[in-house]
């Protein structure tokens, strides 16, 4: 039996909204340590990795490891029916073919439940090694979203280069070129405006903006996002979900033909 109660139910809604355009169907894996998802987008260019630790739930019970295949579009439709402040409880039997979502209003005057049909999804699980990144920039999530959006009107790809002077995002296309540089700013008045750069060695990589833009759909989940880069390796775009875990996206760099 699997049962998980999440007081901040809208967090689940935000997670699903962040990945549903990238991944159509995915397996959610439940174990005593938590609720996780790992999935590649349809074209196998990027990887999504979600981890919600069991201790972040008000109640969490998972008697045996299980994998629940869901259509993220259908899951999003169901979660849309939850009120913003509702408590969400997920329930599934060990051998069932459905998962139930129960929504409770904070005043306890409205309770609803929605059953979602599970699906069999073939998916290979990838091992993501701990990487010694050459550079990590942590910037406001809204700033990352803006950079990706602004550069998308100029070109299809972005070169992200991290040097001691800052992290530069460059794009070019028919319109012309654009460069946006963010510099370390750990003394900003507001904590949510701070930018920090951890640079071990300079690194520059090229990425498809379409995917970086799609990752920015996770903006409502966290105040900040970290981009970690190492030569010839996928960038890790990491949104920390407070007290619970993370939603990470990995995107393979573009390389010369």
């Amino acid at each position: 039996m699997f049962e998980a109660r999440l007081v901040q139910g809208n967090l689940l809604k935000k997670v699903v909204d962040a990945v549903k355009d990238l991944v159509t169907d995915a397996n959610f894996d439940c174990s005593s340590s938590g609720f996780t998802l790992q999935a590649m987008d349809n074209s196998h260019v990027s990887l999504v990795s979600l981890s919600l630790r069991s201790d972040g739930f008000e109640h969490f019970r998972c008697d045996r490891n299980m994998s629940m295949g869901m259509s993220l579009g259908n899951l999003a439709k169901i979660l849309k029916c939850a009120g913003n402040d509702d408590i969400v409880t997920m329930k599934a039997a060990d051998d069932g073919d459905t998962v139930t979502f129960m929504f409770e209003s904070p005043k306890e005057d409205r309770v609803s439940d929605f059953e979602l049909k599970l699906m069999d999804i073939d998916s290979e699980h990838l091992g993501i090694p701990d990487t010694d990144y050459a550079a990590t920039v942590t910037l406001p999530a809204a700033e990352y979203q803006r950079i990706c959006r602004d550069l998308s009107s100029i070109g299809d790809t972005v070169v992200i280069s991290a040097t001691k002077d800052g992290v530069k995002f460059s794009s070019s296309g028919d319109v012309g070129t654009a460069n946006i540089t963010v510099r370390q700013n750990t003394t900003a008045d507001k904590k949510e405006e701070q930018v920090s750069i951890d640079l071990k060695e300079p690194v520059a990589l090229t990425f498809a903006l379409r995917y970086l833009n799609s990752f920015a759909k996770a903006t409502p989940l966290a105040s900040h996002v970290s981009l970690s880069m190492a030569r010839d390796l996928p960038v890790m775009v990491d949104y920390q979900i407070s007290d619970m875990g993370h939603l990470r996206f990995y995107l393979a760099p573009k390389i010369e033909d």
């Binding site: 260019v45 990887l47 699980h125 990838l126 091992g127 993501i128 990995y250 393979a252 760099p253 390389i255």
Partner: peptide, 13 residues
């Protein structure tokens, strides 16, 4: 420019 499959960077778990 070429785009490698993301799975080619990570081993099977």
């Amino acid at each position: 420019m070429k785009q490698r499959d993301i799975s080619s960077f990570f081993g099977k778990a």
